[in-house]
Design a protein around this nucleic acid. Structure first.
Lengths: 215, 215
DNA sequence: AATCAAACCGGCAGGCTTGCCTGTTTGTGT
DNA sequence: ACACAAACAGGCAAGCCTGCCGGTTTGATT
């Protein structure tokens, strides 16, 4: 046989420590997000996470000494991923469908999906988790910011308007609330149609809003 | 001494069973709401509740066999109380301050306070608690309904408008979302002022909204 | 007065959770 | 080749939570 510290006949690729650690952290973080989505923050245990990630308990402890560390990291990661997807899905829109109404519709799809759900749970959970709170506190601001950027880029006629940012902060709040309202009944009562109706109204009132003069 | 089954010299008033049971249930429910507010739904245990209510564990088990029963009852009670307070605080407004803007401001105060917080937690918790979900599902509808009634009563010029209900459903969602956003940082960043700014915008856009024509 | 049922008490058992701890493998520097 | 540190495995202990149970008090019934 070859020398012991190097390849045997059927060896697995030699992986650097940084890679191993990174992959492990990623698996744990992804599993955490998945567990929050499926079980909810409150019912999710570290056992559920290691089971879902198919990882040992020790690995978890090694990379994330405490549960709060893990959840905070997961929240951070989710937010980043979300911001990326955000821009991607906007820029992926067919040019001829790039109306404000369509843009808002795309924006809404981010509140309707699993990630939005997880974000909701984490916002509430943050109230009793200082570490998590520090991650979640800037979220509304950040999202409004990013969407305002994208809107300004796609609809130059809105670019300069001072109240665009405020309007999109309001839209974020509105969508969060709508998602929240849909939680108990899992959107059985055709909330989608209602939201689309709201979108029309918002769009129709948008000129009024971005032109708003506080004086 | 008098007969054993009736008054001694320093007796406590004889209380009917229905009264006792009712009082006990009320204490437990109130303690539950308080605990959700202080500890959050996830961290609240039945032990916390009986401690807060200064009641024995057995009493809890007797009146609410399972934790879900108790929480559902608490949610129900909170909603009822909230609807009452709602109408009260509206009708208590000085007649000369009865503007839509002020009305919305009063409405907002219900999302800003402890009860609103608890409702938020329960909405999220309802996702994994069928019993609670059945209580929480109608909440948004109910609140929008009540506020629409009050608005129609106070501002007759809005009464007939078909989109008043929709608008107030949207307002409910918006306020819920704003309250949610304030959770992580406990409203350190002067969210109150922001909300007041939003209110002005909403009011200015309101005519546009209630007059909205989907055609 | 005697009987019954509801209200209430306090503790126990089983299960689960988290953080830690010891041991083993794998990569890295010399 | 060797020594060292990081990565990983799996189990253990202390603590808590929930639901239940037998026993006691108190109101209702006849």
């Amino acid at each position: 046989m070859g020398h012991h510290h190097r390849r045997a006949s059927l060896e697995r690729a030699r992986v650097s420590q940084a890679e191993r650690a990174g992959a492990m952290r990623a698996r744990l973080i992804d599993a955490t997000i998945e567990c929050v989505a499926e079980l909810g923050y409150g019912r999710m245990s570290t056992n559920d996470i290691v089971r879902s990630a198919r990882v040992s308990r020790g690995a978890l402890a090694h990379h994330f000494p405490t549960k709060a560390d893990l959840v905070s990291a997961a929240a951070q990661r989710l937010l980043e991923r979300r911001v990326e997807d955000f821009r991607d899905r906007f820029t992926a829109m067919a040019p001829d469908r790039r109306t404000p109404a369509e843009a808002l519709s795309v924006l809404w799809s981010f509140y309707d999906d699993t990630g939005g759900l997880v974000l909701l749970e984490l916002m509430v959970a943050a109230r009793h988790n200082r570490e998590l709170a520090e991650v979640m506190a800037p979220v509304p601001e950040r999202i409004a910011e990013v969407s305002a950027d994208v809107f300004a880029e796609f609809f130059p006629e809105l670019a300069g308007r001072p109240f665009l940012g405020e309007a999109l902060r309001a839209v974020h709040a509105l969508f969060s609330g709508l998602a929240l309202n849909a939680l108990p009944d899992g959107d059985r009562s055709g909330r989608g149609a209602e939201v689309r109706a709201f979108l029309k109204i918002i769009v129709s009132a948008m000129p009024q809003i971005v032109a708003f003069d506080p004086a």
